[in-house]
Design a protein around this nucleic acid. Sequence first.
DNA 1: GATGAATGAGTGTTCATTCAT
DNA 2: CATGAATGAACACTCATTCAT
Lengths: 188, 188, 188, 188
Amino acid sequence: MRDKKKKEALFEATVRLVNEIGFVSSSVSKIAKEAGISPATIYIYHENKEDLLISTYVQIKIKLSQAILKNFDGTQPVRDILSTIWKNTFAFNRQHRDWFQYVEQFSNSPFSDLVNPEEIEKYYEPIMEVLRSGIERKILKDVPHEMLTAFVFYPAIVLSNQRLCAGLKLDDQNIESAFTMAWDAVKL
Amino acid sequence: MRDKKKKEALFEATVRLVNEIGFVSSSVSKIAKEAGISPATIYIYHENKEDLLISTYVQIKIKLSQAILKNFDGTQPVRDILSTIWKNTFAFNRQHRDWFQYVEQFSNSPFSDLVNPEEIEKYYEPIMEVLRSGIERKILKDVPHEMLTAFVFYPAIVLSNQRLCAGLKLDDQNIESAFTMAWDAVKL
Amino acid sequence: MRDKKKKEALFEATVRLVNEIGFVSSSVSKIAKEAGISPATIYIYHENKEDLLISTYVQIKIKLSQAILKNFDGTQPVRDILSTIWKNTFAFNRQHRDWFQYVEQFSNSPFSDLVNPEEIEKYYEPIMEVLRSGIERKILKDVPHEMLTAFVFYPAIVLSNQRLCAGLKLDDQNIESAFTMAWDAVKL
Amino acid sequence: MRDKKKKEALFEATVRLVNEIGFVSSSVSKIAKEAGISPATIYIYHENKEDLLISTYVQIKIKLSQAILKNFDGTQPVRDILSTIWKNTFAFNRQHRDWFQYVEQFSNSPFSDLVNPEEIEKYYEPIMEVLRSGIERKILKDVPHEMLTAFVFYPAIVLSNQRLCAGLKLDDQNIESAFTMAWDAVKL
DNA sequence: GATGAATGAGTGTTCATTCAT
DNA sequence: CATGAATGAACACTCATTCAT
């Protein structure tokens, strides 16, 4: 009969603290205090600190996949699909900056090696399918999928990054311009 | 009369260890052991751990700027200049993968906030100048410079990242294809 | 459910060690070892080293106040009251030399600045009242209370100090003589 | 050919630093920096840190003895001699508060055990002689000399102590009153 | 005589984790 | 299920001291 609220509080406390004081300084005890529970309680829900951080990451990635696939319609033209995804990504970032930041911090930590990629990739499969189909139908350039994502998705992440693009105003026009660039990069 | 060799050994040990065990786990004592010196000695050359990590980062960024600006010729067409920079980046990454990885880990750590951006930006000024001139001469899209770099340089970083693009073979042809994508993104 | 015994052991170990090797050399780890606990455990009971030393001091000062106010009877003549206090002080010192020494070492350390004087003074209020009343009733000299205590209490401390008065035998007769001197000093 | 100036600078730096940051925090390197010399240089003039601190203490005690014996005239009445000494003590404290504070900090540190008492006592011999003579001539109470000093000299130290008597104004009148108390204590 | 560089041993403190309750 | 107490190991950093120059 695990308390749902506690697990939820733990998730939120982890994200909040990591965003506040960073990955390195976020100790188990501090996270516990932030969540209003005992450090020992964390070990009921998670095997160890690693597991806590990883599971927090995975949860966010799943939520993220759901958000960016909102209004996904495989029958639309590739460009429209990617445009929707692109805009969803920026919308998600604006609404859940803390989740976004957590993911970025996590991705560049050694912990990220410990995540089973497949566990996450499956949630993004529809997007991969779009890319594959786009290539087949001679709409997208015939290059490895890493190269397509490097130009369609990572620029969005970079542009959303407060640290890297502190001075950049992300208004609708800029987002639109940026997507045009992405599309120019990948379209055949 | 500080021992040049010790400072050099310290630099190398720091990079090596951060690449081996990650930023978080790289403690001062471990770095000292890796460099074959006493932990106390580090504090002769650096004010504190932060200073050690930052100065290591800055050193690499300077070396990196020199490497990617190799054969820089401002009189060439914009496309050729960017192409050279693009290829230099991949060459540098191939030769100094550890330096590259260090920079990526550092950039996403809270330490990166502590670096004075101007100290580094000045070394990359020639590139900025190329972008500015390209926009003026109606060769590049007239968008904020962050958006240009997001499509010209960050994809190179992503593609070079072993973690993100483990399965991608970075042969000359792929590099060429990727640059074409980057160019398509930014060219008017 | 904190272990009362551990806190008590910590108190005793702190006093013992400070008396053995001095204030400066008494490190947290040494105190922990002396108390038979882990250094980390100290931080469950005390915020930091400072807090440990201060709280040890305050505890002793309270015990001391209780000891020297034993048989306190405000209705007695001033001289008798002070005489009782004087004798209690020597008795306490004889029984708890280590506590006495700890207080003296602490008083001359920079830590002593961090103690809220009022926290301690309240326990000694009855004595202050005696002095005030003595002045009012023209029994004691009308001088600032610091001057009265400098002659009534500090000489007792000096005479009790093994370091300063190594060769002095503190028998009843000497204590009596000394009190006579103190009384001659303060009486009108 | 030891540099007199360096030794003097070292003495002053030691006193200054101990008064500024306390006995415990005054490390050899900090003292060296304060004196404008290398830590290693200290070991030319002093065997070790202990020796530095002790020798600083002894120097001050000698200066102090000279100061409080100023205008000493053994032919004067005992009361006048002690009064002069008493006033000299307060004068010295006012002029050299830092030296005074150093002595107090040192006296209650374990280092003080390492000082050979005779090395210092000889400078205070004239005072002892006055006390002995005062007893013989039935002017002072016939009690151990520690008891006399406990009432004639230590109250002066207590009253001079900023920490203990922060609120006490040490004007001529108060000093005079206090000496009267001291004299009442010791006179037969 | 003087020093900057060097260091092993130590400092106070926090860590992730366990366990009896 | 939940926890406060407990801890050995590690943390970043400073120490008194030495020594080649």
